[in-house]
């Protein structure tokens, strides 16, 4: 799994690729907490290259949403593959997160 962070205006784009599970989710958590620690106004997590995610990954994103919510920042997800979206739907979290097709939409929303 790989995590890359880049700035785009006021937004931090966190791009994740590979499989997010108990072993790899701490890496994603680290990237999110670093950005939320800086109170970045908008965090966009791009999951287009994520083929698999379990509850550890989902819980990491829930935590990210809660952390940014504390300082009224935005937290948006982008590009969920069908298998990943299904996990969100099973957990009924697809209605809780702001999910977009691409980064541009997520930044402009």
């Amino acid at each position: 799994m790989q995590v890359q962070v880049r700035q785009q205006g006021d937004a931090a784009i966190i791009s994740v690729s590979g499989e997010v599970d108990l072993y790899t989710s701490p890496e994603v958590r680290k990237a999110i907490t670093q950005q939320s620690g800086k109170k970045v106004p908008l965090i966009v997590v791009n999951l287009a290259e994520v083929e698999y995610m379990d509850s550890s990954g989902v819980a990491t994103l829930v935590e990210g949403m809660q952390l940014t919510g504390k300082y009224k920042g935005g937290f948006r997800l982008v590009g969920l593959q069908p298998s990943v979206r299904e996990v969100f739907e099973l957990a009924r979290l697809d209605r809780v997160f702001s999910i977009f097709d691409n980064e541009e939409q997520a930044i402009q929303a």
């Binding site: 379990d54 509850s55 550890s56 989902v58 819980a59 996990v87 099973l90 957990a91």
Partner: peptide, 10 residues
């Protein structure tokens, strides 16, 4: 949401 509870639910 707690991670452990979410896994069991899934």
């Amino acid at each position: 949401v707690r991670p452990g509870g979410l896994g069991v639910l899934l």
